[in-house]
Write a protein that binds this DNA or RNA. Structure first.
Lengths: 199, 199, 199, 199
DNA sequence: GATGAATGAGGATTCATTCAT
DNA sequence: GATGAATGAATCCTCATTCAT
């Protein structure tokens, strides 16, 4: 998340860069940490500001409201994560199972280890309060990820590398273990992330 | 929650309000609905009260604080759900796969259809703010459910009905689809709950 | 205080007797203890009720409001205390100084030792919120006590036993040490009550 | 309280509101007035705020809780009062009786006339709810005042100006008349403060 | 008379947001 | 642009008081 805007997302969140380290980015980063730890309602903008080492009023210069900041946080994590996954799916030409057990698993494990998956908990807990956000991201980001997964599955089936199963209809099951790991962990018990196989 | 008032008051029908009133139950039910819809912080006790058709102050007569009420809600949903599951696992002697595809799947589908699984979202989103609650329920309720699942798997393996897989180590994967369904749905997209097959 | 209504104050506070121990008295006694410890605002009628071993609603059967109960408490302590003092002043014919150093000092010391003087703190802290009470008691009870003290002083002066001093004008100084002792003690430091002499 | 803002803001005149605003001082002053009139429990922070002409929330910016504000009030009155007294005792070299009947009496009379002595009533009525406050002030402020009084008395005795009496043991009796005056007045009846003589 | 469940006004406290500097 | 003092709506919780039983 830290480097989310390093690629291309400069102007969409209206952040000025400034050579001494994008304040907006620092605020978003701090907000991410606060939000994932305390939840939306539990996060005080003042704490976000302190964590970002800026004054209490500054976040309002970049983000009109707390909700806008929240959306910026989701944006800054989700978009890169799904972009990465899509790139990954297209970049390899390994046999399906090898790919799943190799790079894809590694990707999921990284995801789970990184704090970025915590965004999942945020979406689960707060998503319904921000329906446009949820819908927007579902429609523009998540659905693309799912499409990529589905395309991957279909290709594997075509090649005879995968059995045609219900997976085509619910490709999200491929990432279910990662989600499971995160939700499970969030309920205080670590659960090792194993292969998404046996599917 | 389901059967909390089993002690002396009216049954499932809208019987006359008892004198001593299982108002506590009505409050817990109302609170469950508010909490699942609005989250912990977003729920106003006053709304819980109105929903339960009682005065603003009454919830405090039964639950010292908002947190106590929250705990009571979790308790009232979680305990019966896990008890039910354990009973189910012990009650049947069908071949493992038949059981999983039959009664067990039906149970999960019921669970997902019922609003009770919404408690999962609550635990995911708010659990970390109530660590003792989480730990208590993990230790006393969840772990028993997991043990039951594991026993079931082991029995199936012994009988040669199931292949020995990593499932023994993470039996919670058996309910993962249900959890997936709920979390997915909570992000605004319905996802049919299918068989926990391929297991 | 305990036995305040044993003498003559039965009907004025509307208390029924009932052979098994005047409930009203028990409530007043309990209230006295709560009020002196917690102050007026800090006292919960529910705690008064528990202390008196009666139900939460009972005090309202005897005392229309919390304030009425408070007044009853003041009444039950002040009246007997001043009555006692007046009787004392009239009962003796010792030389003035002997009387002051003997029975009168003993009386003050008893007063201070007893919990009854705590009523002073109540009047100091809460008196201004109950002006009619204060005025009534000043006019009907306190002023009689002062008059008795003044009469005693004047008699002593007439007899040549006491020097004519400002004491005539502020006879309350005779009890000042007792008041001092109580107020001082209430600020957490015990102060022995010595002779009201050297006056 | 009197000179609390001695650091950098306007003096006794209604000078322009400073930018950084010694709002804290204004709030403490307003709180002092509310507390002395209404008591601790009876004071609504909202009223304090209005009296100080600030918003409801501002007091919480300076004082975490109502209790902290209360402590600040006590501090702001007590400390200067006792400091003043100690300075007074050391500053003069008049014969003991002249000092008592002159500057010291004047000091007490001023004290009683000023509203500062009302703090005494606060301590009497609310002190027991704030034991650390009471103890702290006793140990650090009051006891020093008493020590100064005792030193003064002893010096007088050494010089043969005062008779050795119990006063050495309870020097607080020197201020008893002032305390008496205040407590008495608080019970609605003014009592002139006369000489602390006859001691 | 007694009980204790129920009511609801009232007050402490928090925090998103604004704005003068 | 930055700052942080100030605002005030919102919400938890308490408790005097009422009332059905």
């Amino acid at each position: 998340m830290a480097k989310s805007s390093s690629t291309k997302s400069r102007e969409e969140n209206g952040a000025p860069r400034g050579r001494k380290g994008d304040r907006a980015d620092e605020i978003v980063t701090a907000a991410f940490e606060e939000f994932t730890v305390k939840g939306y309602a539990g996060t005080r903008l003042e704490d976000v500001a302190s964590r970002a080492k800026v004054s209490k009023g500054l976040p309002y210069l970049y983000f009109k409201t707390k909700e806008e900041l929240f959306k910026a946080v989701v944006r800054s994590v989700l978009t890169p994560a799904f972009d990465e996954m899509r790139e990954l799916m297209l970049a390899s030409d390994l046999p399906s199972e090898d790919f799943l057990k190799g790079p894809f698993l590694a990707f999921l494990q990284d995801l789970v280890k990184s704090r970025r998956m915590l965004i999942a908990r945020l979406l689960i807990s707060e998503g319904h309060k921000h329906p446009e956000l949820t819908r927007f991201y579902y429609d523009h980001v998540v659905s693309k990820g799912i499409a990529a997964l589905r395309a991957f599955i279909d290709r594997g089936v075509e090649r005879g590398e995968l059995k045609p199963t219900g997976l085509h209809d619910f490709p999200q099951l491929l990432v279910a273990p990662a989600l499971m790991a995160v939700t499970w962990r969030s309920c205080s018990r670590p659960m090792p992330i194993s292969t998404p196989m046996s599917f």
